[in-house]
Amino acid sequence: MTDNLPEVLLLHGLWMRGFAMAMLHRRLREEGFSVHQFEYMSVAAPPEQAIARLRKRIRSLGPGPVHVVGHSLGGILALLACRDDDLPQGRIVCLGSPLNGSGAARGLTHRWGGDMLLGRSRELLEHGLDRWDGAREVGMIAGRMPVGLGAFVGALGAEHDGSVGVEETRLPGLAGHCVLETSHTGMLVSADVARQVAVFLRDGRFDTPLAP
């Protein structure tokens, strides 16, 4: 816990490690947050293991507010970890997380080796969540720069970030949703994304004209 600075915990996505969040980490520090990384095994270990560890980590950064920012699969895990209200308060920002289920993941399961690539996270990525009814305000940043291989393995819809369709990121119960000109991996190095993350963590809303 860092005195007087809001705590933020970053979660990487599938097939990634914490260093993938390095640029976002630096930019959020420049915005005045105390930023921490959360590493987990996205393929070899069951999601329940990561969720239990994440809840423990959030508690360790309390008792003040602890915000969570998750990219892709990391955003889904963040919501599952924070469904109960027994954790320190805070907001969640998801970056390109297929909260409604991933068409790319479903497509991969029908290809040779797909199950192995998705590992223990397969079911969670395929089906997503029904809605968000937790106490935390949740914001979603989706991308619509179609650069990536996801469209070649599954149906992503008219607008997508190369891996996740914009409609796959819309979940009932979200406090805010905005769409930026970025690809799925490009979110991690985008200055616009970092600024919108900071805005939502402070205010519980985005300040783009595309936000509802």
Score class of each variant (00 low, 15 high):
Val147Glu: 12
His67Thr: 11
Pro63His: 00
Pro46Thr: 04
Asp130Phe: 13
Ala105Asp: 02
Ser42His: 08
Ser97Ala: 12
Gly157Thr: 04
Pro47Gln: 09
Glu123Trp: 11
Pro63Ile: 06
Leu117Glu: 04
Asp86Trp: 11
Arg59Cys: 15
Arg136Thr: 05
Gly157Leu: 02
Pro46Arg: 05
His127Ala: 13
Val147His: 10
Ala50Ile: 01
Met116Cys: 13
Asp86Ser: 15
Ser121Lys: 06
Gly148Ser: 06
Gly64Trp: 00
Gly64Asn: 09
Trp132Thr: 02
Gly64Pro: 00
Arg55Met: 05
Ala135Val: 07
Ala135Leu: 10
Trp112Arg: 13
Arg131Asn: 09
Gly162Phe: 03
Ser42Val: 04
Arg131Cys: 09
Leu95Tyr: 15
Val153Ala: 12
Val147Pro: 10
Ala50Pro: 07
Ile141Gln: 01
Gln89Trp: 12
Gly139Leu: 05
Ala105Arg: 03
Val68Asp: 00
Gly96Tyr: 07
Ser102Tyr: 06
Ser121Pro: 05
Pro88Ile: 04
Leu124Glu: 00
Arg53Ala: 09
Glu137Leu: 10
Asn100Gly: 15
Val147Asn: 07
Gly143Ile: 06
Gly96Met: 12
Met140Pro: 02
Ser60Phe: 10
Ala81Cys: 09
Asp115Asn: 15
Gly114Leu: 03
Gly143Trp: 02
Leu87Lys: 03
Asn100Phe: 08
Glu48Arg: 13
Trp112Ile: 14
Arg144Ala: 12
Arg59Gln: 15
Ala52Phe: 10
Gly74Leu: 00
Leu61His: 00
